[in-house]
Computed example of a mutant assay.
Amino acid sequence: MSSPCDPEYAPVGDVGAALMMIDSQLKAVYDGRTGKRAEEQRMADQVTASMGREGLDALLDGTCTLIYMFMTWLRAACEEHDKEVVEHVVPTLVGTMRMMPKTFRPEVIPTMAGLLIAAGTGLSPNLWRAQYGDWTAAEMNPLEATAVLLAEHINRISGGDRDFASRLITGALSRADQG
């Protein structure tokens, strides 16, 4: 039975721009560039401010698409080892969220966990979230950080390859363009 939250009904958004932002955040974390983070955040804020409403919506949808793609890959990896993605990934990421109170205020953690669970069970995270109203400004940084945490988790379990998650997505995008 089809769900109104089925990914086939979801807008894909600007996955390329979302991946660029996530990849930039990952590189900053890996390189330990804490001094440059404020400058990079200022530049990212300028880019998003110049996008307009449609561009921001596309970036938001693209970020949700990344979350869906990352969780789909993680679900397949877990299934290869007879494990359940929701059981093995979500608690780890929620625990990390709880250790980051400046990024993840307690009231947004259930929404971010819900996005992960929706994606992990094959539902579109953005359509799942749309059931509860419009996105709030307070959810924007946690949404981006959730995608970063997922990418970092994938990189770590892939043997520490810091670019694995990004290559996973760019490979999928390349295959989609060819098909």
Score class of each variant (00 low, 15 high):
S124H: 04
L123A: 13
A145K: 03
G13Y: 09
A165W: 01
E54K: 15
G171D: 15
D31V: 05
N155W: 04
V15K: 00
L150E: 03
P7I: 02
Y9P: 09
R42M: 10
A176M: 13
I67G: 06
E139C: 13
I157V: 15
L168N: 03
T63S: 12
D163F: 08
K36Y: 03
T96Y: 02
I109D: 01
D134R: 14
P142Q: 07
D134V: 15
V86S: 06
T146Y: 00
G171V: 14
P125A: 00
M140L: 12
E84W: 10
A77K: 07
P7A: 02
G52M: 07
V47F: 04
G122Y: 06
G159A: 10
T96P: 00
V90M: 14
D82Q: 13
G120C: 13
D57H: 12
E107G: 10
R167H: 07
Y9V: 15
R42P: 05
A76C: 06
T111Q: 04
A176I: 15
R105C: 01
D177V: 15
F70T: 00
G13I: 07
A137G: 10
L143Q: 05
C64H: 12
N141F: 13
R162D: 08
A151H: 02
A130C: 06
I67A: 13
G120V: 10
R162H: 13
I157W: 09
I22D: 05
M51H: 13
A38C: 11
E84H: 13
T136G: 14
S3Y: 14
S174M: 09
A44Q: 08
I157R: 09
K83S: 08
M71H: 03
M1K: 14
I169P: 09
P4S: 09
P110K: 08
G160H: 05
R37T: 14
M43S: 11
R75I: 06
C64S: 15
I67N: 12
G114P: 04
T65F: 04
L150F: 04
A77I: 07
R105P: 00
M1W: 14
A10D: 08
S24G: 13
D45K: 03
E54A: 14
V94D: 02
A76M: 05
A113F: 07
L123W: 12
L93P: 02
G55R: 03
A10K: 09
A49M: 14
L59N: 12
A49Q: 08
E87W: 09
L173I: 14
E144G: 11
G133E: 05
T103P: 01
T72D: 10
R42W: 10
R42N: 10
V89N: 07
K36G: 02
K83I: 08
M100T: 00
K36L: 02
V148T: 07
A28E: 01
A151Y: 05
L59E: 12
A38M: 12
I154D: 01
G160T: 08
V108M: 04
M43N: 12
